[in-house]
């Protein structure tokens, strides 16, 4: 029965993504207005607190607020720093980890509404016959540090500096001001407030303009590039700090044919070239979102697996691969489906 409804891991993940899109964008309207206070308030995905109907919100806004209003202010009055200053932050991180422990970075690949929106746009791009712009290994290497930079500067550094009085108060939550999920999720609820640019101060204006321009870029780029924003998302780097601490893992064993194959690399929406060339810990890369596509498109039995506490949840197999490629190419091109807009010859 389940196999009929979900013939592939991809279909199952897509269903989970759509359900989670509703929970993280409209969950408050579906489950009650006050649900947002009652789940985690520290979700490891970009569910946005600015969305008035979300059922939960991401850890990054909590971090920024706590660094701004609690730790930063307390550091200024250094003699008054006590453990209780850090307790709310510790509780937030612990709550985040309680969720993260179970699913690890599947929060990126299965739950994050911004990830789902980008995947939907990419699917539309395939139907529209748009090209696929893949990142070559050297390009990927150049982009990867950006997510760490955004985490350090926008999520941790500036809010702390604002709390300590070294930066303007408007820099208390700078990441939220540029986050495309803030615009995507609020627009999905027909709320136009967030896309309207704040003009109160130069900092507001600059951050808003940057955020809107980035959102516009991501929306169009996602038609031809897989997960364009995920590559620089600070939540990906935040999650990467904890990914080795969760029992949910991507496991790849050493296999001779891998060097000549490379199908899993093509299937990876994050262009993680290491998945084809490495094995063991190096294959479970910091950019991995545990979407499972590499395991789905690996043509050999059990070379790539998703494991929880060592238990195999899903593993590659030749038979599965044959079925999978009949439906969709590793790059995400649907087979035997209508392409709405074919390339002009």
């Amino acid at each position: 029965m389940l196999k009929k409804i979900f013939p592939t891991l991809g279909r199952f993940r897509f269903t989970v993504q759509i359900v989670m899109l509703f929970v993280t964008v409209y969950g408050g309207a579906l489950l009650g207005s006050y649900t947002v206070d009652r789940i985690s308030q520290a979700l490891p995905s970009l569910a946005c607190a600015f969305d008035k109907q979300t059922a939960d919100h991401c850890i990054l806004i909590v971090n920024q607020h706590q660094l701004h209003h609690r730790i930063g202010e307390a550091l200024v009055k250094a003699q008054e720093i006590t453990l209780k200053v850090f307790v709310p932050t510790l509780i937030s991180v612990a709550t985040f980890f309680a969720f993260f422990f179970v699913l690890n970075k599947a929060f990126c690949g299965w739950v994050c509404p911004m990830g789902t929106v980008q995947e939907l746009l990419y699917r539309i791009g395939r139907r529209l016959g748009r090209p696929l712009n893949r990142f070559k290994p050297d390009n990927v290497e150049r982009v990867r540090p950006v997510k760490w930079l955004l985490l350090l500067v926008l999520v941790l550094g500036l809010p702390l500096a604002a709390g300590m009085g070294y930066a303007a108060n408007e820099l208390g939550d700078p990441y939220c001001q540029v986050c495309p999920s803030r615009l995507a999720t609020t627009l999905l609820t027909a709320d136009t407030e967030q896309i309207a640019l704040r003009t109160g101060t130069n900092i507001n204006f600059f951050l808003g303009a940057l955020g809107n321009a980035m959102f516009g870029f991501v929306v169009i780029a996602a038609l031809a590039v897989r997960q364009p924003f995920c590559r620089i998302c600070p939540l990906l780097s935040w999650n990467a700090m904890f990914q080795k601490l969760s029992p949910m893992r991507l496991v790849k064993k050493q296999y001779d044919k891998c060097e000549k194959c490379g199908v899993c690399e093509k299937a990876c929406p994050m262009d993680i070239h290491e998945i084809g060339r490495e094995h063991g810990n190096k294959a479970f890369h910091e950019d991995c979102t545990l979407c499972g596509r590499c395991a789905e498109y690996c043509p050999d039995d059990d070379v790539i697996q998703i494991r929880f506490f060592g238990i195999r949840l899903f593993g590659s197999s030749r038979d599965y691969y044959k079925t999978r490629v009949k439906r969709e190419s590793p790059e995400g091109m649907p087979k035997n489906r209508v392409i709405w807009l074919k390339q002009a010859k």
Binding site: E193, A196, R198, L223
Partner: peptide, 29 residues
């Protein structure tokens, strides 16, 4: 008001600017 010191026109303008920046990616090379 939610729209106090906010400009929808400028917001849409910068969003459009970002969109235009990504248009070359849609062209077949």
């Amino acid at each position: 008001s939610a729209f106090d010191q906010r400009s929808i026109a400028m917001g849409l303008g910068f969003t459009l600017l970002g969109m235009l920046g990504a248009v070359p990616l849609l062209r077949h090379r």
